[in-house]
C-alpha cells in the first residue's frame, strides 16, 4: 500500500495543475463559509428592530452545536471543486496513456485503481480537515462559554465525510468512463445540478413521494440537510428529512459499493 502511495505522490508532487486546484479547494471552503458568516453578522449586527427580529427568528446558525450542520450544508455545495481534482487525476492517466504504462511497468489493474482510490480518500480527508477547521474556528469564535453540548451535532462531520467521499467517488467513476477531463466534469455538473434535481422532482411527483432520495447523488445530498433555521419554514418536511438521515447513510454506502464495484469491474474488462 505504501508503494502505491509513494508512486502517486511522485506523480502529483511536481504537477502545477494539481496544486493550483488544490489551492482553490483550500481557499474555497473557508471562503464560502466565511462569506455566509460575514453576511449573517452584518445582517444581525444592526440594532434596528428588523435585524433583531431576524436574529430572534433564525437564532445563530454559526454557534455550536448548529454550526456543524450549517457549515456541512454550505460546504456540500462546493464538492464540484475537489471533484475537478479527482477527475483530473484519472483522466490525465488516459490523456498521457500512463495508465497503460503503469500496468506495463508492473502494476496490476487493481493496484492502479487502489492507488487512485487512495487519492480520492486523501482528497476527501483534506476536505474534511478544511470543514473541521472552518467549523471549529467559527464555532469557538461565536459560541459563548455557557452553551452546553457544543459537540452534540459533531456527527455531521462523519455525515459530511460520507457525502463528500460518495460524490467524489461518483466523479471518479465518470472520469474513468468518459476519459476526457472537460467532458467528464461537464457531465458531472450537468448531472448533479440539473438532471438529478429534475429526475428527483419527477420521481417524487409521479412515482412515489420518497423515491427521489434514492438517486446516486441525491442520496448523499440528503445526509447534510439545510440548517435548522431554514427548516422552520416547513417543520414537518424538515423533521422528515432529519428522520431519513440514518436510512440515507445505508443508501449512500450501497452506492459507494456500486460506484467502486463498477470502477473495478470496468477496468478489469476494458482494454487499456
Amino acid at each position: 500500500m505504501l508503494h502505491l502511495f509513494r508512486t502517486e505522490w511522485l506523480k502529483i508532487k511536481n504537477y502545477p495543475g494539481f496544486w493550483w486546484i488544490m489551492g482553490i479547494t483550500v481557499l474555497s471552503y473557508p471562503g464560502i463559509n466565511g462569506m455566509f458568516y460575514t453576511i449573517y453578522k452584518q445582517q444581525t449586527a444592526n440594532t434596528k428592530s428588523a435585524a433583531q427580529m431576524l436574529k430572534m427568528l433564525i437564532g445563530n446558525p454559526f454557534e455550536f452545536p448548529e454550526v456543524f450542520r450549517t457549515t456541512a450544508f454550505a460546504s456540500s455545495m462546493f464538492v464540484i471543486i475537489p471533484s475537478i481534482l479527482v477527475i483530473m487525476l484519472i483522466t490525465n492517466e488516459y490523456t498521457y496513456k500512463t495508465n497503460r504504462q503503469n500496468v506495463i511497468d508492473g502494476w496490476s489493474r487493481n493496484e492502479f485503481l487502489i492507488a487512485k482510490f487512495l487519492n480520492v480518500v486523501i482528497i476527501t480527508m483534506i476536505v474534511i480537515a478544511l470543514y473541521l477547521l472552518v467549523t471549529l474556528s467559527i464555532g469557538f469564535s461565536t459560541t459563548g462559554a455557557d452553551v452546553k453540548n457544543k459537540f452534540q451535532l459533531a456527527n455531521y462531520t462523519a455525515l459530511f465525510s460520507l457525502q463528500t467521499f460518495a460524490q467524489l467517488s461518483f466523479a471518479f467513476l465518470l472520469g474513468l468512463l468518459i476519459k476526457r477531463a472537460f467532458i467528464a466534469l461537464g457531465v458531472f455538473i450537468f448531472y448533479k445540478i440539473i438532471v438529478e434535481n429534475i429526475a428527483a422532482e419527477l420521481l417524487n411527483k409521479y412515482v412515489h413521494a420518497d423515491t427521489g432520495r434514492f438517486l446516486p447523488t441525491e442520496s448523499s445530498d440528503m445526509l447534510t440537510p439545510v440548517p435548522a433555521f431554514l427548516g422552520r419554514l416547513d417543520p414537518k418536511v424538515y423533521d422528515h428529512a432529519l428522520g431519513l438521515i440514518n436510512q440515507q447513510v445505508f443508501v449512500t454506502i450501497g452506492y459507494l459499493f456500486i460506484f467502486w464495484g463498477l470502477v473495478f469491474w470496468i477496468y478489469k474488462k476494458r482494454d487499456l
Partner: peptide, 30 residues
Amino acid sequence: RKHIGSLLETPNFYHYLSAKNNLKITNSIS
C-alpha cells in the same frame, strides 16, 4: 512484468514531469 523492460507503441510519460521524475515513477512501480 516488473522484470520486463517495455516500450509499447508510443512513449507514455507524464508530460508535466522531467525525464528524471518520469523514470522515478518507472522505478517506483517496477
